[in-house]
């Protein structure tokens, strides 16, 4: 069984069925790309995996134990093994350091000094050293996105859920983040990367799932789904949608 296993997952809001018959698995050290057109349900799927909402059908299984449909205490424990970066992240009304250490504080991990140290390291990893005492709400969209990422990786989660993590970033920053994400490959973390960016997906993902109108229409190795392409540092603009597999 995979580290994260999703079986027959479905989600409806009233009459509207957003997700249907989702079956997926992700291993530790693997990066699974999740691609599909807007409104296909990518964000909803990530929210369900993060246990922010309960599925209408099916189960989410983490390391062999079901985590959906369980009492709140268990869900909190499961969530603390994951971290999610939202598409448009919001910052807490405080400075950057407080934002990044939030998850550590909530888990009561370590002493204040240790938490600060970890936070500084995370900020360095996303290229925002020195931002510690800035007011988080005065930052640009791109900076906020990187803070949100720092906020997540500082927790060293076993499962990392990313919803368009580089959407607001300029190419250079995006590239730096891509390298950061790449470094997670083969490690302890299972990563699900929801993205529009085909190139990013090709570059980073080991496997790809294609989500169209709430269903998985294709699942397999990224070379097979997205076509052969060299994976190293290809720059140049690729117009999205030119070779979409859907």
């Amino acid at each position: 069984m995979a580290f994260l296993e999703i079986r027959d997952l479905g989600k409806s809001y009233g009459q509207a069925q957003i997700l249907k018959d989702i079956n997926l698995g992700v291993e530790k050290g693997e990066i699974l790309g999740l691609i599909g057109p807007t409104g296909s349900g990518k964000s909803t799927l990530l929210r369900l995996i993060d246990l922010l909402e309960e599925p209408s059908r099916g189960t989410i299984i983490l390391e062999g134990r079901a985590v959906s449909g369980r009492p709140e205490k268990e869900r909190i424990a499961a969530r603390r093994r994951m971290a999610m970066v939202f598409q448009k992240p919001v910052m807490f009304k405080s400075n950057v350091l407080d934002n990044v250490t939030f998850g550590l504080m909530v888990r009561r991990e370590g002493q204040a000094e240790q938490r600060k140290e970890k936070a500084r390291a995370a900020l360095q990893a996303v290229g925002l050293s020195g931002y510690e005492s800035r007011d988080a709400n005065t930052l640009s969209g791109g900076e906020m996105q990187r803070i949100a990422l720092a906020r997540a990786i500082v927790l060293e989660p076993e499962l990392l859920l990313l919803d368009e993590p580089t959407a607001n970033l300029d190419p250079r920053s995006a590239s730096a983040i891509d390298s950061l994400l790449q470094s997670l490959a083969g490690g302890r973390t299972a990563v699900i990367l929801a993205t529009h960016n085909m190139m990013q997906c090709r570059k980073l993902a080991d496997r790809v799932a294609v989500l169209v109108e709430g269903r998985i229409t294709a699942l397999g190795r990224s070379e097979d789904i997205l076509g052969q392409e060299k994976r190293s540092g290809t720059s140049g603009w690729k117009v999205p949608g030119s070779d979409l597999p859907w």
């Binding site: 929210r47 969530r79 971290a83 939202f86 919001v90 807490f92 939030f102 909530v106 888990r107």
Partner: peptide, 26 residues
């Protein structure tokens, strides 16, 4: 307070009382 704050706090692992405290702080 924006509802996204709640989601963010929860997804970062906050339990109910921690969420309440976070939102009050916001």
């Amino acid at each position: 307070v924006s509802p996204h704050i709640r989601d963010t706090a929860i997804s970062l692992g906050a339990d109910e009382s921690q969420v309440i405290r976070t939102i009050i702080k916001e």
